[in-house]
Each structure stands twice: as structure tokens, then as C-alpha cells.
Design a protein around this nucleic acid. Structure first.
Lengths: 239, 239
DNA sequence: CGGACAGTTGACCTATTTCAAATGTGGTGG
DNA sequence: CCACCACATTTGAAATAGGTCAACTGTCCG
């Protein structure tokens, strides 16, 4: 059930059999969620964190005028709100972008981990630091990259993150997002996303159609995005 | 020496006398740094985290073309790189924007804290989650707010954060940044920052001259920024 | 007094947005 | 199997927020 989660952790550190058992013991209720469903709202008091088992979800913030910014995408194996353990409530919403399956991890169990399994606690602390690193890279995209770079960069990021859990290879991957979702990730309008996707296709770099990204020139795509995966911390370390 | 740091923590949780002693015992070398000095570079292996005692610093990422994005500003009492404890190396640089004084906290001491003082460890985990919340708010600014909103929002954020450590009130605060620094925070050009500051002045909202922000209409400034401080987690909680 | 920056302004430019309409496309009910 | 509906995608034309380039003006400090 949590193989994708373990794959994500084990790409970055050593998780012992004992720790794996502790993780499995922390799991609570499993839920299935429909698509386009906001399952956590900013300001709600939370008592458990949510681990994504299957599907695609996002964190987003809305503006009074109706504009939306997605601040991070989540794939299987990600904690959507591990930070709610420290924060107690979130400053953003979390919603599904596809039908999803999730499992709840009570904050009480996480607290036990901080008291009895300090190494595992450090690994989980690392996961929240990794989310922050992704936020920083998105700040760079939103602040300083052009439209074509923003989209190319996002696709490069997703290729690596999905690759870790065996859901992407060099040729492409399934990506059940609309162009409007993509515009909310990149701070662009849906119309401009459409034109930019055509540009990427005409340049022979990638094609995004029918909920699938086909990468036709990976080095070229990475070059235009100026993509460097070091912000994803893919090396194994002793935390 | 670390009063600003304790003020920041105690605005969010209860720190016992014992925990205060643990924090004081974790402090290592104190350093004075000149202005415009990059003291941590992306990719460097780090063995201690740095607590800012005095001055203004920033985290930033550079692009090959020379563009720069500041991802967060830091005031006295902030850890610049508490996350380097989990990450081991950073994905961004850290530099001074004024002359600064900092104190180093060895990662070995932080590791001891995770093993012997789980509550304090959770408080520090919270601090890194707070940095991530600030990153998310900046993503929203960079992705969806107009130039005038981005600058107004940044000023509102700094007023609150500096206020917590007694360095700002409703009338304004010292802010030793250049307009170019401001442009690197907001993803704008220095020229447009200059015009936008004039706009804010002519609207009677705020005036930024001579390294000082004078707020002439705080409610108006907050209104145009659509500022809501909940992402700064100012309520005290039991973490 | 001079030099290095920081700030200011004007004229022009362009990437992206806005608005509006047309064209797929997938699912549902008859 | 078809008609229809709700959406997602695509395209064109016009508008604009913010960028670029270049020059000029403080201002601080040695």
C-alpha cells in the first residue's frame, strides 16, 4: 500500500525494517476521494496528516478576485500535509485533481515517532524541507522564468518525481491535468498555456495531449527549462 | 543575545526555562559579516545552522542569464538555514543585505535536541514549516498579484515580522534595502519597482525613502495587498 | 572634489492578458 | 446508436502591465 512512499524515502535515506514497521503501524483510515474535491481547507484544525496512495493532488491558495495559485503538485507517496503536524492548521487548501486514494496518519502517532524514533522523525522533517525546496524552485519559476520555461521546468520536475515511483520514463508519463490546472501552477492564463504548449510541440520538445506528456527531446526540454534536479535532493544521506 | 529568537519562538509556543538553557548551550561561534556577503552557497556541505542576531539577510537563487530571485528575507531571530540540518546542503544561496551578526549552531547539537528534547525538536520543525508557509505566500504573490500588490504585501509581511521583535510599529520601520533588492524579491525590474513605489506614495499608502518605510495608511496598504497574516501563524499552540 | 551607486524619468517595446467565438471531446440519457 | 450537454481546447484580434534602453540626477563617502 505504501510502496511509493517507501520508494520516495529510500531514494533519500536508509529506512530500517523496524522503521518501516513503525510507519505501517501509524497508518489509519483509508479513503477514496472523487476528482476536483477539496479535502483540506485553510484554517481547519487538523488532527492527522494525509498520505497520498494513488492519484494526483495539489495545494493551492485563492485570491479574493478568484485567481488561484497552485503552490505544489503531489504524486503517490507524498504527504499532502505532513506540515499540519507542526502547524496544526494550514494556510492553503488541498484538493484532488483526479480520483485519489489516501491514508490518514494521526498526529498522535507522529508525536510518538518524534519521541521514540528520532531518526524517522528527522526523515519526516526532511520531507517537509523538501517541500519547501520545491516551493523555492517554483518561486524562481514564477518570478523570473518565461512562460515556455515555466512549463518546461514543471514537466521536467514531474518526470523526475514520477520516475522515482515508476510512473514516468524518458519518453513521457501520464498527466491527468487540464490546461487550466497548468495555468494555475505556472501563474499564466489558460489561453497562454495553450499557445505555449503549441510552441513546445512545434519546437519538437514535448507534446501534451490526451492527459499524457510525450517527451520528444528530453535534453532540449531540460535545456530550455535550465533544469537542474539538485533541488529535489535525490542523493541518499544519513539524516 | 538570542532575545529576538526567543521572542519569535514564544510568539508561537511555550519555551520552558530548561529548553531556553538547551538553546543557549547549543550556540557556537559568533561571526560578524559585511554587507553584500554571500555566506552560504548552494551545494556546499554544511555542518551547522546559522541564527541571525542582527541585520537583514536573504535566501536567493540565480539563473544562468543573470536574473536573481530572492525566495525569503530574514530578520533578527530567524534561522537562515535550519533546514540545512535535514538537507545537508542547500539548493539556494544566503547573503547579507546589511552588516550582520550571526551565531552558528552545530548540526550535532541539533541532532542531540531531536534525541533528548522532542518538544524543542518539534518547535524547530515548526520553524521550517513556517518558512515554507512564507514561500507559499510568495508563490501566490509572484504568480497572481500585480506589481503594486506584491510590494504592498511584502511591506505588510515585514511590518508584522519586524514588529514581533520590536523593530516596527504601525507608522513604519527601518528597511535597509535597495530598490534592486526589492525587485529581486518581487520578480519585477528595478525600474518598475521605482514607478510602483511612486504610485504607492501618490496614493498616500506608504513612502519608502532613505532606508525607511513610512506607512501613511496601514488599512489602505493592507487592503490593496489583500493582506491576511494567518500564514505567519501568530497564535500560540502546543506543538 | 570625484567616483560609484542608487534612484528617477521618458520613450518605446513586447510578452502575456483579455475578450470573444469556434471547435473538439467525453459522458449520459433516450 | 445518436443527440445533447458540459467542458476543455484552440484561434484571432486588440489591449496592457511591465520590461528595456538610455540618459540624467541625486547622494554618500573617501
Amino acid at each position: 500500500m505504501i510502496e511509493t512512499h517507501l520508494a520516495k524515502l529510500r531514494a533519500r535515506d536508509t529506512i530500517s525494517v523496524e522503521e518501516e514497521r513503525v510507519i505501517r503501524d501509524s497508518l489509519g483510515e483509508v479513503r477514496s476521494l472523487p476528482t476536483q474535491h477539496t479535502c483540506i481547507r485553510a484554517g481547519e484544525r487538523l488532527h492527522s496528516s494525509t498520505l497520498l496512495l494513488e492519484g494526483l493532488m495539489c495545494r493551492y491558495k485563492d485570491l479574493p478576485g478568484g485567481d488561484r495559485q497552485i503552490t505544489e503538485l503531489h504524486v503517490a507517496g507524498d504527504f499532502l500535509d505532513l506540515h499540519s503536524f507542526s502547524l496544526k492548521q494550514l494556510d492553503h487548501n488541498v484538493m484532488t485533481l483526479t480520483p485519489c486514494r489516501v491514508v490518514l496518519v494521526p498526529h498522535a502517532k507522529l508525536k510518538d515517532i518524534t519521541e521514540q524514533h528520532p531518526h524517522l522523525a528527522r526523515v519526516y522533517w526532511f520531507l517537509t524541507a523538501l517541500d519547501a525546496a520545491i516551493h523555492r524552485e517554483w518561486e524562481l519559476s514564477l518570478g523570473r522564468r518565461s512562460a515556455i520555461q515555466r512549463i518546461a521546468h514543471l514537466i521536467c520536475e514531474l518526470r523526475v518525481r514520477l520516475g522515482l515511483i515508476g510512473q514516468a520514463d524518458d519518453d513521457g508519463f501520464g498527466l491527468p491535468l487540464t490546461q487550466a490546472d497548468l495555468s494555475d501552477c505556472t501563474g499564466l492564463t489558460p489561453v497562454h498555456v495553450n499557445r505555449t504548449l503549441r510552441d513546445l510541440r512545434e519546437r519538437g520538445l514535448m507534446d501534451f495531449r490526451g492527459r499524457r506528456v510525450t517527451i520528444t527531446d528530453l535534453p532540449g526540454l531540460q535545456a530550455i527549462a535550465e533544469f537542474d534536479d539538485s533541488y529535489l535532493y535525490l542523493r541518499r544521506e544519513d539524516r
